[in-house]
Design a protein around this nucleic acid. Structure first.
Lengths: 157, 157
DNA sequence: CGATATAAGACTAAAAATATCTTATATATC
DNA sequence: GATATATAAGATATTTTTAGTCTTATATCG
């Protein structure tokens, strides 16, 4: 019952883009280095964000990722669920049929409520608000030290 | 981000005991059969419930498990956390130090809030209430068909 | 065309969840 | 006390999920 690494990485990615503002193209390499996410792993996560319509991916030289919507219109929930699928605290909640009779089940009702509350809270948070504040899970925007890792794709001669 | 099977089993076990009422001794075998939980797995889960002070385990012939408190005083939260540990939607929430500066982190704050709400909801539900209602995740108390599996420990000759 | 990006999916490794098995211990009953 | 019946406790195994990497292909700029 915890956020997966992939979900966390997705948040970092969008937060980094949010700090650049909507529409600004940022290379995968830069995002990976600044947010401390393995570049190849980021590629997979970005594809999911793109499918969900949150970012746009530009291929080719000088390619990268950009936000499609204004940070204020992107909720924490949408980013998380784009990466890890719909939040479900208990299978019983999202997959009726995994139980005999979820309509009348007391346990089911509690989990349903908890699940709804959780999603509402995450839906109520947008990336403009988060970008404005500090964040511990992300190296700050105009960092000097830059990434300590070189996670580029290419092998240099 | 979902309840583990072990947590679910723990709930079923306590719910079954709650339907018998506080103090009534029920054999592991019966609980396992009625709640459709593997008997050996149930043993491990019961040990955790016992350590948390929720049930008492009686060894020996005619042994079994019994509730130590009244069902109305046992919260869903206490049972779940006895089995799967403290609920943490994000490592960042329960393990300060996994981030640089969680005190001022925007992401952290949201997860903290969501985590608190979730725990409050689960804390607000007790087993007397649930035992009174129907439940899909558990074969009903005076079931006729009984368990379809024989999960006893002993090999018969 | 060639250099530089990302795409996409196969593949591998590590971790966690889910059991199961084995040996030991406790208790009631005969 | 001996025996049958329970659970205790921990080692081991299996399965699933998560996490990360590698390889080949494709797109774009200059």
């Amino acid at each position: 019952m915890r956020l997966t690494r992939a979900g966390e990485y997705g948040i970092r990615c969008v937060l980094h883009l949010a700090r650049h503002g909507r529409g600004t193209l940022v290379s995968r390499k830069e995002i990976a280095a600044r947010t401390d996410v393995p570049a190849h792993f980021l590629a997979k996560i970005a594809q999911q964000l793109a499918r969900a319509g949150i970012i746009e991916i530009m291929q080719g030289a000088n390619g990268g990722y950009r936000l499609l919507a204004d940070p204020s219109e992107i909720s924490l929930l949408s980013v998380i669920e784009a990466v890890i699928g719909e939040i479900s605290l208990n299978d019983c909640v999202t997959r009726p049929g995994s139980c005999h009779n979820s309509a009348t089940c007391a346990i089911h009702r509690v989990w349903g409520k908890a699940n709804r509350e959780l999603r509402d809270t995450l839906r109520g948070t947008n990336f403009a608000a988060m970008a404005a504040e500090e964040s511990c899970c992300l190296t700050s925007f105009p960092e000097t030290g830059a990434g300590r890792r070189d996670d580029s794709d290419e092998a240099r001669p």
